[in-house]
Design a protein around this nucleic acid. Structure first.
Length: 845
RNA sequence: GGCGGCUUGGCGGAAUUGGUAGACGCGCUCGACUCAAAAUCGAGUUCUAACGAGUGUGGGUUCGAGUCCCACAGCCGCUACCA
């Protein structure tokens, strides 16, 4: 089937143009330091989320975003911008390592092969990337600067006064001790309970646990020494500075919810001689606290548990330890818990309340302890009912709702000095009371946790850290990049020791110090790659000041447009913002944010309307589409499917449709001879356009396509080009100048076909090097316009009238119309609505 | 449970500030070309025989609502006992 004659010879000319763009470096982007760099030219930085080069190759989701940015980039180029539109690979990652475990082959080999395949596929789609700027996060030179940035973070602390990162050398100068400095570094070591998978040989992030468990791997909870990044210090800035960005509201909200700011108070309860602090957002309900709950892992539990309850408590703790957070949540909505036998004293009224442990309280949030107010908290209410604990009303609902389980604001009752106050005021008054009596304080709590930054994998950046005498030390910058040595085998050892600990010679240094053997997570490389594109060959800095200054913008975010999938709404986009802010604080970059405008492309579903997946057998391979219909057809179809941001199903028939459109453009230009060769159509003539209607369509197309590209509304731009092509097809004469203007407009969408036609009809300089045509207002004007005539808002007739017909003229014409008369005869005229150039509505009754 | 998004012909989708609903494409029907078919070109295609009705459902505002307001339903994503 694949060898039938194609309506236009894309298999011949597409690779030829790709070759030419490559050898001539058509899309090379000059930057500061280059001989041909023009600093006066405005810049435009349009960025794709770079792919993980999997063994499966590109899927059709990749070219969706990539084509969109390519069209925009080519368009901006044609409009005089110096466009930075780069591509690279996020090439560290578990699959290459899993393959290494199976075969013993070094992951670098698999990775290189996958990158080569990705590059081939990307080039076959004709994207206008500057390939000289291509980067891979696994390149030693790239690793070097990832490690260098890590060291900047490691050598910084968060200064609360200035709300910024500062070098720890400032603390050294102030005489801080080594321990004190280590306790405030933005990169620090902590013993944290983590999810450890023995057969994968690594810890997993919370969000990875279910995925790997479902694949049959075992996962257990273990306290391990881990590197953490103190992202929580940036929580407030990460929320506040979202407002300066041109991102979809949904994504901003997602990030805000992820960071999860809540305002409330810490309240100190006492249990015997111990003080247990709880966090609450409802200090106004303190009088209604009838029991206390500690997380099962809370450190005080063993100490406060009574002898009678010891066995029950320990059994309960054990059963919780094996459950994942998800088990504790979704799968176990049913409340469970055990009484510890201890009682706590409520600081506001001295009441003794029982202390329980229950897995609905998490150690990781707040203080790991809560005061339970069952009357006004759903979870506490459920728990109290199950275990017959007292429920005391302290809020009077504002409506006639029942007070049991009423969680909305209301009026304080049974609450001593708070009685009669609305909730908001009661909260404030209680916090004042707690602070002045030294029983608690105002507290802002975030859901965001510090970032667990170490992995026990092999295929990641090693930490540029050595250990000596129990302290960690940065290695010298001149020793970067620090690369992992090849291993004899990549199988996990079955212990939580990182894989790199197998490389004993590498680990043990002559001076007696040992290397850190953890590696960085895959997120590290993607946190700053957009910076490296600006200055990829720099050997003395991660980005030169000149390149940074030129490619950055006067807006808070550096990159003008960033396009990628929603799956990165929180993690990648939050981590990259965090790193950028640290670099900003330290003076290495001049904008506070990395990405000014963000657009999420919608998922492409399979032909069956389901998510594409191997198991469903509905996956579309872009290589097949290119072979059958050509790269231009694939590009065009992906853009014609619907709005970029929308979820939409694939339809192979639709690819045929756009392919037919391209064939029609081809046939406007050429006639096919008997032998299958193409000759320029005699309809193409180098004459002024005398066809006013055709001229108008061409200029409307120039205008609309330009406007639509700016709006990223590619589907409507294509439909306009189809209209224009149909007009050319039907015209007796195709004026050369207008046809070339059309080809120029088509070029960003279908670069190969438009270049080929243009070259064959003798157009001269490559379209990719041409400027975007301007449209002529005069050509757009119609002398007569079809006016809509309504009676009582219903369409009754359409009349051709002069474009500037006034109300009187339109009215006169309307009352001539039989169709109008039919609906107005015998009625009283009440009102006339007239919209110039558009419509006349006769209100009669 | 919470948050977000979506709902327009047989299908993907168009519709400025509220102003011709269904652009463009797919599919389908008919015609031309052909011995024939494919391809191509041309015509038609929301439903209804018609009157009319029509943008998930019910209400509202307006001369006029796919678009604005209120209530409801259904799908899809993300998140999950966050105190």
């Amino acid at each position: 089937m694949s060898d039938v004659r194609k309506p236009f010879p894309f298999r011949e000319f597409e690779p030829r143009w790709q070759q030419r763009w490559e050898t001539e470096k058509t899309f090379r982007t000059p930057g500061p330091g280059d001989a041909d760099f023009d600093p006066a030219k405005p810049k435009y930085y349009v960025l794709d989320m770079f792919p993980y080069p999997s063994g499966a190759g590109l899927h059709v989701g990749h070219p969706e975003g990539y084509t969109a940015t390519d069209i925009l980039g080519r368009f901006k180029r044609m409009n005089g911008f110096n466009v930075l539109h780069p591509m690279g690979y996020d090439s560290f990652g578990l699959p290459a390592e899993q393959y290494a475990i199976k075969t013993g082959q070094h992951p670098a080999i698999t990775t290189a092969a996958n990158i080569e395949n990705f590059r081939r596929q990307l080039k076959a789609l004709g994207f206008g990337y500057d390939w000289d700027r291509e980067i891979a996060t696994t390149d030693p030179e790239y690793v070097r600067w990832t490690q260098w940035i890590f060291l900047q973070i490691y050598n910084s602390y968060f200064c609360e006064e200035t709300n910024k990162a500062r070098p720890v050398s400032e603390l050294e100068a102030k005489g801080w001790s080594r321990e004190d400095i280590d306790s405030v570094r933005l990169a620090f070591v902590a013993d944290t309970p983590v999810w450890w998978s023995p057969d994968l040989g690594t810890v997993l992030a919370n969000e990875e646990v279910e995925e790997w468990k479902s694949k049959g791997h075992t996962v257990e909870r273990r306290p391990l020494r881990q590197w953490m990044l103190r992202i929580t210090k940036y929580a407030q800035r990460l929320i506040d500075e979202l407002d300066t960005l041109d991102w979809p509201d949904g994504i901003k909200l997602l990030q805000k919810n992820w960071i999860g700011r809540s305002e409330g108070a810490e309240v100190d309860f006492t249990i015997g001689d111990k003080t247990v602090t709880v966090f609450t957002t409802r200090p106004d309900t303190l009088f209604g606290a009838t029991y206390m709950v500690l997380a099962p892992e809370h450190p005080f539990v063993p100490e406060i548990t009574s002898a009678e309850q010891k066995d029950a408590v320990e059994a309960y703790q054990k059963s919780c330890a094996s459950k994942s957070d998800l088990d504790r949540g979704d799968l176990n909505k049913d409340k469970s818990g055990v009484f510890t036998g201890a009682y706590a004293t409520n600081p506001v009224n001295g009441e003794q309340i029982p202390v329980w442990i229950a897995d609905y309280v998490m150690m990781g949030y707040g203080t790991g302890a809560i005061m339970a107010v069952p009357a006004h908290d759903e979870r506490d209410f459920e728990f109290a009912n199950k275990f017959n604990l007292p429920i005391v009303q302290v809020v009077q609902p504002t409506n006639d709702a029942a007070w049991q389980g009423y969680t909305d604001p209301g009026t304080a009752v049974n609450s001593g000095f708070l009685d009669g106050l609305p909730t908001a005021e009661a909260k404030a008054k209680m916090i004042d009371w707690l602070e002045s009596n030294n029983k608690g304080k105002r507290r802002i709590q975030y859901k965001l946790r510090d970032w667990l930054f170490s992995r026990q994998r092999y295929w990641g950046e090693p930490f540029p850290i050595v250990w000596k005498d129990g302290y960690h030390h940065a290695i010298s910058e001149s020793d970067l990049p620090l690369l992992a040595p090849p291993l004899d085998d990549y199988k996990p050892s079955g212990t939580p020791d990182p894989l790199l600990s197998k490389a004993t010679e590498w680990v043990h240094l002559p001076d007696g110090s040992v290397r850190e053997t953890n590696t960085m997570p895959q997120w590290a490389g993607s946190c700053w790659y957009y910076l490296r594109y600006c200055d990829p060959g720099n050997t003395s800095r991660f980005i030169s000041n000149e390149a940074e200054a030129y490619w950055t913008s006067d807006k808070p975010g550096m990159v003008d447009l960033y396009v990628g999938g929603t799956e990165h709404a929180v993690l990648h986009l939050l981590y990259a913002r965090f790193w950028h802010k640290v670099l900003f604080d330290l003076g290495h970059v001049t904008t506070p944010e990395p990405f000014q405008k963000l657009v999420n492309q919608g998922l492409i579903l399979g032909e069956d309307g389901q998510k594409m997946s191997k198991s469903r057998g509905n996956v579309v391979n872009p290589d097949d589409v290119v072979r059958e219909y050509g790269a231009d057809a694939l590009r065009l179809y992906e853009m014609f499917m619907g709005p970029l941001e929308q979820v939409k199903p694939w339809q192979m028939k639709g690819v045929e449709g756009v392919s037919r459109f391209l064939a029609r453009v081809w046939r406007v230009a050429f006639e096919e001879a008997q032998d299958g060769s193409f000759t320029v159509s005699p309809k193409i003539q180098d004459v002024p356009c005398s066809n006013k209607e055709l001229l108008r369509v061409v200029h409307e197309t120039i205008k609309k396509v330009g406007e639509d590209i700016e709006k990223l509304s590619f589907n409507t731009a294509i439909s306009q080009m189809m209209i224009c092509t149909n007009a050319f097809t039907q015209a007796e004469v195709v004026p050369l100048k207008e046809f070339i203007q059309f080809l120029t407009v088509l070029n960003p969408f279908a670069p190969h076909l438009s270049e080929e036609i243009h070259a064959r009809i003798g157009g001269g300089v490559m379209l990719s090097e041409q400027t975007w045509p301007s449209y002529d207002e005069a050509a757009l004007v119609r002398s007569e316009i079809e006016f809509i005539i309504q009676v009582n808002g219903k369409l009754r007739d359409r009349l051709m009238l002069s474009k500037d017909a006034d109300e009187e003229a339109a009215k006169a014409a309307a009352f001539e119309s039989a169709k109008v008369k039919e609906h107005t005869d015998g009625k009283t005229l009440r009102k006339i609505i007239f919209v110039p150039g558009k419509l006349l509505n006769i209100v009669a009754g």
